[in-house]
Design a protein around this nucleic acid. Structure first.
Lengths: 277, 277
DNA sequence: TTGACAAATGACTAATTGGTCATTAGTATA
DNA sequence: TATACTAATGACCAATTAGTCATTTGTCAA
């Protein structure tokens, strides 16, 4: 378990230096200071490593956004907080963003594409639920289009973080984009993305969370922890999956208990979806 | 010359199927029905092939946009025509767009990055000049920001062409985005991208067109043509580079003569910049 | 100290890579 | 037909790749 993490970290460095296919298992093991055989004890193939890494990074990203969107108290600040969170993430993880968000297009591997795409869809859904929260039923017919605009802003301005080490003021950027978003929401009359179109785009790669997968996920988290409130929360949550006896409020509380752990962000996100909180 | 084209075409197919590094010279030559040696008669290395392909496709793209931006008669239609042109291009060349516009999967090669980046900058400058044409001095302080919004729209909505074979109505999309752009232009008060920031982002990779390179380019075009008005125009234009004796109007006309040839689009674009027309 | 088991090694394989070059095929001129 | 030339070939090379497995090392309890 420890070793897996080491490999992923070092591999990540190499990927961001040289790119995907250009990095050999040899190089990874050298930088880790382990043997080739040891690598294959942790990962069955090189592909498995790549898949794990994408999961890891995308999960962090998606979960972070969703957290902000769901938890902002003041509706007035929601947009600004959303943009702030997203660009702070870009600033912090610009390398992984560069590798995983952009590589989408040219990955030969169909499985890989599907994976990245499914996370992209989750992100889109988070944004959509934010737009609904913000503008309610007022903007039923333009909300899908607005989501695409927001995604466009994010893509375009994130370039500033990805390729240049500029001293960007995230707060100013966020409030500038929030203004733009509001202006569009209030003035747009001619949307292009309709509900139907949005559904077509989102549907084909839709991903369900199976009970088994979720349990597996929890087991992983549990194993990595010593006796603690967080660990116990996880154990309780796992029991709730098999048979839900506690109230939603209590379950929500248990999830809150684990949310602050880096490795549990994703689990928390999935649990919220699963229990429909 | 003929063979170069064949190789580039077939290689392009393979790249869009399997990706970049995953395609071997072997595979390319097999699909072309030529030997390995023959490949290395046309290109010194595999990298040279990649560079040529990027040049070829990006040149088409950039030149097309610039042409539209410069030549629309009715200022009212400018925005719509711009978007229409760009998305028609995406629709037609979705594969190359997918491969080459998504730059940074290829971070491995610094030279490659610089190349793609320089084209990106040219595109940005075309958009900027459009914005200036559209809104004049009125929007001095938000024009750079507006350019980033436009780029964002393009990126976000181009996704529809890249990954899904949807029956998109380009005209509707264009007018929808034109509306958004105008709304932003008229209501935005809080721009983020200032002139200084824009200059920092654009400057480091600035690319100059050397006289020699331009002559080389013309020679290439001339060689590929039989006796014709177009060919003679090119010859005359080459003379004008060495010693400019004709008026700007005449030179403009000569450029118009060659513009319709696919292989001369780029040359026309460069010539216009060179003679400051 | 011994024995049992898991963790880790790195030499090895088989396949593939980009690139070379002595050789051959094809063509045009004399 | 003979000569001179270029275009094209594909066997070959050294380097590198992902992945394997017989062997060694480390770590326990008895």
């Amino acid at each position: 378990m420890m070793k897996k993490q080491l490999i992923m970290e070092k591999a990540f460095e190499l990927f961001s230096e040289q790119g995907f296919e250009a990095t050999s298992v040899q190089q990874i093991t050298e930088r880790c200071g382990i043997s080739k055989g040891a690598f294959y004890l942790s990962f069955k193939t090189k592909d498995e490593l790549i898949f794990s890494m994408i999961d890891h990074h995308m999960q962090q990203f998606v979960a972070d956004i969703d957290l902000v969107v769901r938890n902002v108290v003041n509706k007035q600040d929601l947009l600004v907080e959303f943009y702030k969170s997203i660009f702070k993430n870009f600033k912090k993880h610009s390398k992984s963003a560069r590798i995983f968000m952009k590589e989408q297009g040219l990955t030969a591997n169909k499985e890989l594409f599907k994976k990245v795409n499914s996370y992209e869809i989750m992100m889109t859904q988070s944004i959509l639920s934010m737009v609904e929260e913000l503008y309610g039923v007022k903007l039923q017919d333009i909300k899908y289009d607005l989501v695409y605009c927001i995604k466009g802003f994010v893509r375009s301005y994130s370039e500033l973080f990805m390729f240049y080490d500029l001293p960007i003021h995230v707060d100013e950027l966020a409030s500038s984009l929030a203004e733009k978003t509001n202006i569009l929401a209030q003035n747009m009359t001619n949307p292009f993305i309709t509900k139907e179109l949005a559904q077509i785009v989102e549907s084909p790669f839709d991903q369900e969370i199976s009970t088994d997968k979720l349990k597996e996920l929890l087991d992983q988290n549990i194993q990595g922890l010593e006796e603690s409130i967080e660990r116990e929360s996880l154990v309780l949550l796992k029991e709730q999956i098999e048979q839900q006896t506690l109230s939603k409020t209590i379950i929500k509380g248990l999830i809150e208990n684990i949310r602050h752990l880096t490795d549990c962000k994703w689990t928390a996100y999935v649990l919220i979806k699963y229990f429909e909180l």
